[in-house]
Simulated assay, not measured.
Amino acid sequence: MRFDHCFQRILLDGAAGGVWYDAIPKRPAYRHADEPLLRRAVEMGEAALRGEGDLGLWNRRSLAWRAGRRA
């Protein structure tokens, strides 16, 4: 993870349970996501700050969802 958008991708994908742009109808995501999805993303970010979330795992999962989407 190198950029802000990577952090956003990881949290939004995790909150959506897949590629976030399949769950959020328009961009930008923060403006068009429903409140429950945004709350889940924030909760994941807060868990990561507390050391209770595995960003590496979440990143790999996000990338795998995206790789599968291209197939």
Rank of each mutant, 00 (worst) to 15 (best):
N59P: 08
F3R: 15
M44P: 00
H5V: 13
R70Y: 07
L55C: 10
R70C: 08
D22R: 07
A29I: 00
C6S: 14
W20S: 03
G45Y: 03
L63Q: 13
A71K: 08
E35Q: 13
E35T: 09
E52H: 10
E52V: 11
F7P: 08
G56C: 10
L12V: 02
N59D: 15
A15E: 03
A47Y: 04
W20C: 00
Y30N: 09
G51C: 06
G53H: 05
W58N: 08
R66Y: 07
L37W: 04
P25W: 01
L12T: 00
G14L: 02
I24N: 00
E52L: 13
R70Q: 11
G68W: 02
E46T: 01
R66Q: 13
L57H: 15
H32W: 10
I10G: 07
F7Y: 14
P25I: 01
L11R: 02
A67C: 08
E46Y: 03
Y30M: 07
A23E: 05
G53C: 10
D13W: 05
L11I: 08
E43C: 05
A15T: 06
F7Q: 13
R70G: 10
V19K: 00
R31C: 12
V19C: 01
V19R: 01
S62V: 09
R60E: 15
A33P: 04
G18M: 03
G14F: 03
D13H: 06
D4A: 13
H32T: 09
M44F: 09
C6H: 14
R50W: 07
R9Y: 11
L55M: 15
A48N: 02
G14S: 12
G53P: 04
F7M: 13
L57S: 14
R69I: 05
Q8V: 11
M1W: 14
S62K: 10
S62M: 10
R66G: 12
E35Y: 08
W65S: 05
G51P: 04
R2N: 14
A33S: 08
A48F: 04
Y30C: 07
R70T: 09
G68P: 00
P28L: 08
R40P: 00
Y21L: 06
W58T: 05
H32R: 07
A33T: 00
D22S: 06
R50T: 05
F7L: 15
R66M: 12
E52I: 09
G18I: 03
W20I: 02
K26A: 10
M44D: 01
R9P: 06
D22M: 04
D54F: 04
D13L: 08
D4W: 13
R69T: 02
M44N: 03
Y21A: 00
G17K: 09
R69S: 04
R69F: 04
L55H: 08
A64E: 13
V19T: 04
D13Q: 12
Y30S: 08
A23F: 02
E52C: 07
E52D: 15
G14E: 09
L57R: 15
P28W: 06
D13G: 12
P28V: 06
W65C: 05
L63M: 12
R31Y: 12
N59T: 13
G18C: 04
N59Q: 14
V19A: 02
A47Q: 11
L49Y: 06
R27L: 13
G51M: 09
A29H: 00
H32N: 15
P36W: 01
L11Q: 02
